[in-house]
Amino acid sequence: MTVASSSPPSRLPLGAAEAVAPVKKAKSRPGGDGALAALFIAPAMLGFLVFLLWPTLRGIYLSFTDFNLLTPAEWVGLGNYVRMVNDPIFWQSLWVTVEYVVLNIGVQTVAALAIAVLLQRLTQSSVLRGIVLAPYLMSNVVAGIVWLWILDTQLGIGNEIIAGLGADRIPFLADETWAIPTIAMINVWRHVGYTALLLFAGLMAIPNDMYEAARVDGASEWRMFWRITMPLLRPVLAVVLIMTVIGSFQVFDTVAVTTDGGPANATNVLQLYIYDSAFGRFQFGYASAMSVALLVVLSAITILQYRLTRAGQTDLG
């Protein structure tokens, strides 16, 4: 089975080599170590029930209420959802988010694949892998601020270079058309190395003999990529895509520190609108309804991607 979606996208895919193994089906006889098991599982169970299961159910409940934190939640039925469907800002946010995800995931996946293949076919140096991973250690906040500075219209080195080449300076984060692509690329910078290493791990599972054999037959690297690498990497790529798409939809930090939704709502991504509704206007019910909408969108995408990519899944041998 493939656990496709994870909450913190940063978490799911990490696995120690030691832990990689098929789940063995242990025979569980009832009874046994009941009391001891209860003791061992108690803290995790508490965390699971109180901070994962309960908030999930509560979030769904709150989406049907009018709630401002101060007075008790008041049941309003589908009121929030009716309002959401008729709210142009909600649709605008959703659209902006989708635009961001398409750009972010599109560029990131191609770049990560390129880096992974280069790391596999050119050099397997762990120093290079470390360098590629470095931006991932920065928080989104740090990455956002650094690129805000580099891309500053007047003083940023990025624009200095553009001006030096004789072109017009580009207000990357202050312009309605440029802002979303720019934020998408900033997040590519931070996450591409991590994604590349995930793909690299998948590439390492492809036996080197296959490349050797293909080379004997006179195949070019380009041909080997399409005939060996891509088909065999496909299942891994599918899982990585599902995870990164889900992570991408939750974009917030980078936008919050660079543009804060502006200019003119051009970067008002869904998470930012949800945050603003809850903490700026104390409309927790409405914010919850939008969270539910996001959850539905993410689930739908996960199922769809899973169905699409599972078809024709290949395996080694």
Partner: peptide, 23 residues
Amino acid sequence: VFALFLAGLMVPTIFTLLPNFVL
């Protein structure tokens, strides 16, 4: 119980933030 825990992977963190804040 383990299957239930695994299902928890499916819930995006972002979804639990608001209710967790209330809590």
